[in-house]
Computed example of a mutant assay.
Amino acid sequence: MGQILARITARRQELNLSEQALAVQAGMSKDGIRNWRRRHEAGEENAGANVSSISKVAATLGVSELWLLHGIGEDVHPTIAIAGKVGAGAQVPVFDVYPKGAGPQVECPPGLSPHGVVAVQIEGDSMEPVFSAGDLLFYTRHTHEGVPADVVGHRCVVEDEDGMGWVKQVKAGDEPGLFHLISLNPGANTMWNKRLRWAARVRLHWPAELARKV
Rank of each mutant, 00 (worst) to 15 (best):
T9Q: 04
G27A: 12
V147T: 11
G73T: 13
V97L: 10
H115Q: 08
P109S: 01
K85T: 06
D135G: 14
D31Q: 10
Q121K: 14
G71M: 02
A199I: 02
A58V: 10
P148W: 01
E44D: 14
G177V: 06
R195P: 02
I82W: 04
E145R: 12
M191I: 12
P99V: 13
F95Q: 04
V157W: 04
A59I: 00
E65C: 07
D162Q: 14
P129T: 12
V202E: 12
P148Q: 09
P93M: 11
L112S: 11
G153M: 05
D162W: 08
S132I: 02
N189A: 12
I82N: 08
L15W: 07
P148M: 04
D75G: 07
S29T: 14
H205I: 12
A200G: 09
D31P: 07
A21I: 05
V51T: 15
W192S: 15
D174T: 15
T143G: 00
E14Y: 01
L22S: 08
L22M: 02
V157S: 05
P129H: 00
H115K: 14
E128T: 12
P114W: 00
Y139G: 13
G43W: 15
R7Y: 12
D162L: 15
A211F: 08
D150L: 08
P78A: 06
Q169V: 10
G187S: 09
A188Q: 15
R34F: 01
I80C: 05
R12N: 03
A188R: 13
H142F: 07
I4E: 01
P186W: 00
D31K: 14
A188W: 03
I182C: 00
A102K: 15
H70P: 03
Q105S: 11
K56D: 08
V106K: 07
S52K: 14
K100A: 13
D96V: 01
M28C: 05
V158F: 03
A49T: 10
G146V: 03
R141S: 13
V202L: 15
M1W: 00
V57W: 03
R195L: 01
P99Q: 06
A102V: 11
N193K: 01
G27C: 09
K30A: 12
V167N: 07
E65H: 03
L136A: 06
W206T: 13
I82K: 11
G48Y: 04
K194A: 11
V76I: 12
H70G: 11
D125K: 08
N193D: 14
K213Y: 07
V118K: 01
L136N: 06
L112T: 09
V24C: 01
L210D: 15
E107I: 12
P186T: 08
L5V: 08
V117P: 05
G103I: 15
Q105T: 11
W198M: 08
E41H: 11
V117M: 13
C156R: 00
I182A: 00
R38L: 09
T143M: 07
N189C: 05
C156E: 00
H154S: 15
G134P: 12
Q3F: 04
L181I: 11
V118T: 15
K168D: 02
E107V: 13
A59N: 11
C108V: 12
P104H: 02
